[in-house]
């Protein structure tokens, strides 16, 4: 079934189906995405990341209400990623609990995704789903990552603007941020400003940022310095300022030429990853039965290191051709 015409006509059921096809990496989904791809590239992809419990979902809920209440608002999509269980492969996706205020707005589309074992804070197919939503006419796409600390920085390659969310009472989280996701921030937010300790967290973060400014492309001469904002998803404090900062960052990207730089980096990351996966898949399929298993056994018996075995596999295949 070709879902492209109904998706372009604004049929939300067709869009939801297409997102499933993409999530399951079906050939039909890929074909439809390919047809839609020329229409993508308009949307502002905004990543929302931070440690678990900092209030990312509640913040998105407030932020989207703010943006939708403005004159001539864009349609907004939200991709909310939660972790899959490493044992069962199942998942409980609970981000919608905090987004109930957005229900009933026909200009908002929320989709929950399980990361399905992917380690970088997103699912493998998050970017494909974002591209489909982009082509379907959503002007802003919020991508909320799995609760992240240090290494889950895939969002930096998948979004134009990254908002890193922290909250008071996270203790050593600031230390973690220092070495981790703070470096990818375009905007830094201390959420839960209504809680005691928010000012302390803000001061500590400011000190950290002064030591090592979160300038994502500083080696490339970017002159954007990440603003530090205090918000409360409960009271609404700081939400208009955050909306302004996100819009401001988009204007900065467009005016400085950074937009193209980030698009290229994103495409590089996506194509490179797919190429590696597909080549490895195809390579293994072409090997005689048992060869790969025999190679694993050699490593297990400590006869050869993994790197050596891989070289041998590749050389063996080359010689056979």
């Amino acid at each position: 079934m070709n879902l492209v015409p109904p998706v372009l006509a604004g049929d939300r059921l067709a869009l939801a189906r297409l997102l499933s096809l993409l999530e399951n990496e079906t050939p039909e989904g890929l074909q439809d995405l390919s047809a839609l791809y020329p229409r993508s590239g308009q949307a502002h992809r905004v990543g929302i990341t931070g440690a678990p419990g900092t209030g990312k979902s509640a913040l998105v809920n407030r932020l989207v209400q703010e943006l939708r209440a403005r004159a001539d608002p864009p349609q907004i999509a939200i991709l909310a990623v939660d972790p899959s269980s490493p044992f069962s492969g199942g998942a409980i996706l609970g981000d919608r609990i905090r987004m109930r205020d957005l229900s009933g707005d026909p200009g908002v589309f929320i989709r929950s995704m399980a990361n399905r074992g992917s380690l970088g804070g997103l699912a493998r197919t998050s970017s494909d789903l974002a591209a489909a939503l982009d082509a379907a006419g959503f002007g802003i796409i919020f991508i909320e990552t799995v609760g992240s600390g240090q290494a889950e920085v895939d969002i930096a390659g998948a979004a134009h603007t990254v908002v890193v969310v922290d909250a008071p009472g996270m203790g050593d989280a600031i230390q973690a941020l220092k070495a981790g996701i703070l470096e990818i921030a375009d905007i830094v937010v201390v959420n839960k400003s209504d809680l005691p300790g928010a000012k302390t967290t803000l001061t500590a973060l400011r000190a950290t940022l002064e030591l090592a400014p979160a300038v994502r492309d500083k080696d490339k001469g970017s002159d954007w310095t990440a603003p530090l904002l205090l918000t409360s998803a409960t009271s609404g404090e700081g939400i208009p300022e955050l909306a302004e900062a996100i819009g401001g960052h988009r204007r900065f990207l467009e005016q400085s030429g950074e937009w193209e730089v980030r698009e290229r980096a994103r495409v590089d990351q996506e194509v490179g990853r797919l190429l590696r996966e597909r080549l490895a898949e195809r390579f293994l399929k072409a090997q005689p039965d048992g060869l790969y298993e025999a190679a694993l056994q050699k490593v297990l018996a400590r006869e050869a290191a993994p790197g050596v075995i891989v070289e041998q596999l590749i050389e063996g295949a080359d010689a056979a051709n």
Binding site: S85, S88, G90, I92, L93, R100, A114
Partner: peptide, 21 residues
């Protein structure tokens, strides 16, 4: 939780949902 442990993806929406929601 039980459905998750059986490998399903469960979207949990919380309390007091209207039929429309």
């Amino acid at each position: 939780r039980a459905l998750r442990d059986a490998g399903m993806e469960v979207i949990y929406t919380g309390l007091r949902q209207t039929p429309e929601m």
